[in-house]
Amino acid sequence: MRDRPVIYGGLAVFLAVITLPFWRGIESGVTTKGPELARPATARQCVASTEFMKSSHMLLLMEMRDQAVRSGDPWYVGAGHGTYTISLTGTCLEQCHGSKTEFCDRCHDYAGVAPGCWSCHLDAGHSTGSLTAMRSSR
């Protein structure tokens, strides 16, 4: 059993590697509670229910995107029969959810996802600021 140190050593390395996400989570103070989201800047009726938005906002965004870009129809009729101009920056952010950093990023960072939206769409709060700075903050 000369291999014993190698075997146990290898096992230890393997365990350390596969549990790495847990250690990193503990290190950065992640809890199971989830992030606090900043409330929308102005209270108003919503495009869809909170539950739906939590689970499927990305699908809704894709649907809106295809409608606006491919069908050339920028008006979206929401659940409450309100009509919205399809615009990620102008409507979703500015009218409803406020800032990207306070709203979108909190959950996305928590969930460890990095949607590509922001490599083109602008965060309204940064519209007049330096775009380079914004890029490096992502």
Partner: peptide, 12 residues
């Protein structure tokens, strides 16, 4: 992006 001086937030 580094070559856009003042961006128009209405357009990506």
């Amino acid at each position: 992006r580094p070559y856009i001086k003042t961006a128009n937030p209405e357009f990506p």
